[in-house]
Nucleic acid binder design. Structure first.
Lengths: 244, 244
DNA sequence: GTGGATCATTATCCCAGGTTAATGACGCCG
DNA sequence: CGGCGTCATTAACCTGGGATAATGATCCAC
């Protein structure tokens, strides 16, 4: 594990979607960090069922949470982008009920094992932020349930692409006319409860309809509103989120 | 709203699945309660998109969280049983991203609007319990995503019935050879991303296979292990959960 | 006791999406 | 260079589960 990067120079924190912190809070957060963890693309960050986990903030890169059935069927629960907290479930429960895998090379800020109790006993505002992040992730998963349970394949794909586009933007990952989308079609399929083959069919239709450009892991969406309509997908405007 | 019932005489707390509390904690919890709210079966407890919500603990009865698409398709996110906390999402976000509806007559313990900040600043152990409950609910929803995304209709129904059976048991609702299951087949369908008709077909098969008895809203499961196998459903042993 | 809800049940029909398989395009390694 | 693994793409085929509709059974309210 690398030594911890100084939080004062955090590249994420200045982004407009993150909630400002007081200098005291920032110091406590930095204080609780024990280092950076680097993972290669495709690496397992946290194993399904793992017992002692640590809490991390994802600083750089993409990852995803997933669960599997014993016969190999896999379901992606949600994607993790810079600023997201991970490992909280393992810290609070006995074993981690899901796995976490890196999609790109990933840089994680690691917290010490005593960070959680310390925040809760000494820094109520940070404790509340942690709870907020937990509740926020649940909100995302709630959306996934609606998508997978009640949207058609076309709606699912459109909704997911809009969702990821907006989240990437919020994490400062917008580039000229598009984002880097480090997913294979299998990831999209596993996130939406579809087969790879059908995912491909739907993507073709979206491309031929002129809704998206997607090649070489670069996604651009010509008309976001049109895509929202296709996916029946409208999120509420997101408030600024805390960052640990 | 009725006056708050004394927490010292709470019928839930003595159950073996709840974590013990210190007298101090119990006093603080009781202190934060502002009363009981009663809702009829079928009533909306919290409306989708509602702005100012309150936090409640479900004391008695069954309810469910849900989201809808604008054309009416509905997805049930999870079921709420005695001991569950609800409304946290509304307290932490601007608007409640899902609705909550009562399945039976329901009795809720209501917390004051300042309860959350007060717990966090003065009672770290209770604050941590709240976070635990939030993370735990997310765990349940994660399971739902796996079920709806990757299980077959038969597996879904079996897994849901086992899940609800165990949760009802944990809330002290086991009666002679079975539980009261206050759901219509439409609720089951909406929870599993199925149509009502197909849900009925699957239930018939489970009945004819001798796996379940289900009539008149009473469910009994002859062989839990067999049902688990049908549903490919195995939960980890649940640790004792906190109760607010 | 009769018209109208709601809910369970079944049958008929049919399509959205799964399964299998074959083909290419790359990129990587020896 | 040639073999291999991963991905994307398409075609052919088929099935799990959706849609629609009809029939009862209760349980009201009037």
């Amino acid at each position: 594990m690398e030594p911890a990067l100084p939080c004062a120079a955090c590249p994420l924190r200045p982004l407009p979607d993150f909630k400002p912190v007081t200098p005291t809070e920032l110091a406590s957060i930095y204080d609780a960090k024990v280092g950076q963890r680097l993972c290669a693309a495709g690496a397992t960050i946290l194993a399904e069922g793992q017992v002692a986990t640590r809490v991390y903030t994802l600083l750089k890169g993409w990852a995803f949470r997933f669960k599997t059935l014993e016969d190999g069927r896999r379901q992606i629960l949600n994607f993790l982008l810079p600023g997201d907290l991970l490992g909280l479930q393992g810290e609070l429960h006995a074993a981690l009920p899901h796995g976490v895998e890196a999609l790109t090379p990933v840089n994680l800020c690691a917290f010490g094992s005593d960070a959680l109790p310390r925040f809760f006993s000494r820094h109520p505002s940070i404790a509340l932020d942690i709870t907020w992040l937990s509740a926020h992730e649940e909100r995302l998963v709630d959306d996934v349930v609606l998508t997978v349970g009640r949207r058609t394949a076309m709606e699912r794909v459109a909704a997911l692409l809009v969702h990821l586009y907006k989240r990437a933007a919020s994490a400062g990952l917008i580039e000229t006319s598009g984002i880097q989308l480090p997913l294979t079609q299998m990831h999209i399929a596993d996130a939406l409860g579809l087969s790879v083959v059908h995912t491909n069919r739907v993507l073709q239709r979206l491309r031929k309809g002129g809704f998206i450009r997607l090649e070489d892991q670069r996604l651009s969406i010509g008309d976001l509103q049109a895509m929202r309509r296709v996916g029946r997908y409208w999120e509420e405007p997101a408030p600024r989120r805390p960052l640990l």
